[in-house]
């Protein structure tokens, strides 16, 4: 491999690998120990995941040694996911509430009962 291509540094991969395994073990410990506060345990577990992801991207994938423009590749992709989630969640939640309300107000008609019996007789539902 030419030096032209290997302009980035090489951190101590053994230490990084060890930190990653320790963080994974901490995630499991948190899941078992912090049982009283769900928000805290979920935040810690996913916080560890974000740190692990950063360590892999920055050190193993050498992103921290690349020009800043290359950062756009992974970080814009992650931003796309966040934008999609943030854009869809409010609509998704309100539609779900409407469906739940409709379900609560549902009046069973004789036709529905007849159809249900027919489906039961034909083994479509159990």
């Amino acid at each position: 491999m030419s030096n032209e291509q290997d302009y980035h540094g090489h951190p101590n991969y053994d230490v990084i690998g060890l930190i990653l395994v320790v963080l994974m073990a901490l995630s499991v410990v948190v899941d078992f120990v912090v049982t009283g506060n769900k928000l805290l345990s979920v935040s810690l577990i996913f916080g560890f995941s974000i740190i692990k992801a950063y360590l892999v991207i920055a050190n193993f994938m050498h992103l921290k040694y690349e020009p800043k423009l290359v950062d756009l590749f992974p970080y814009l992709s992650i931003a796309c996911m966040i934008i999609f989630f943030a854009g869809v969640y409010p609509d998704s939640a309100s539609i779900d509430q409407k469906m739940a309300q409709d379900f609560m107000n549902l009046e069973v008609t004789p036709d529905m009962i007849t159809e249900s019996i027919r489906l039961l007789e034909h083994g479509v539902v159990k």
Binding site: P74, L76, S77, C80, F85, V88
Partner: peptide, 18 residues
């Protein structure tokens, strides 16, 4: 390529979380 893969899996994860 990695950016494309992250968008695919990011979409999966976002849908799962929804």
């Amino acid at each position: 390529l990695i950016a494309g893969e992250l968008i695919i899996f990011g979409g999966f994860i976002a849908c799962y979380l929804l």
